[in-house]
């Protein structure tokens, strides 16, 4: 995983603030590949309850992480319980690392 401890801590505390303590954050995409360089930070977040407007929550979190991480690009996907997994979720679950 190519993400330093400070970045991981910021991500986790921001996710907790926005989505609660129960939310599980997975890093996936190019940042889990140690042979690559740079790249966006892709996150899949599992929440325990359905969110009224998931898209808005994803955009809000991506925007606040962009600011908190000094302008680094973060892609956020939120997975709610009971929804059928999308192909991108399956990929994230397969290769993702829980933060």
């Amino acid at each position: 995983m190519r993400l330093d401890q400070q970045t991981r801590d910021i991500i986790k505390s921001e996710v907790t603030r926005c989505l609660g303590q129960e939310a599980v954050v997975r890093l996936f995409g190019s940042r889990v590949d140690d042979t690559q360089r740079g790249g966006d930070i892709d996150l899949l977040i599992d929440v325990t309850a359905v969110i009224p407007n998931r898209i808005a929550a994803e955009c809000r979190l991506a925007a606040s992480l962009f600011i908190k991480l000094g302008g680094r690009k973060v892609d956020v996907l939120i997975r709610e319980p009971g929804n059928p997994p999308l192909p991108i979720h399956e990929q994230a679950l397969r290769q993702g690392i829980i933060l």
Binding site: A63, S64, F66, I67
Partner: peptide, 21 residues
């Protein structure tokens, strides 16, 4: 606010890329 501005950027990306099934 930067927050609102970046939220709109995210929204736009979502509407462009068709990952919304």
């Amino acid at each position: 606010s930067v927050q609102a501005w970046m939220e709109l950027r995210e929204l736009r990306n979502r509407l462009i890329h068709e990952y919304m099934e």
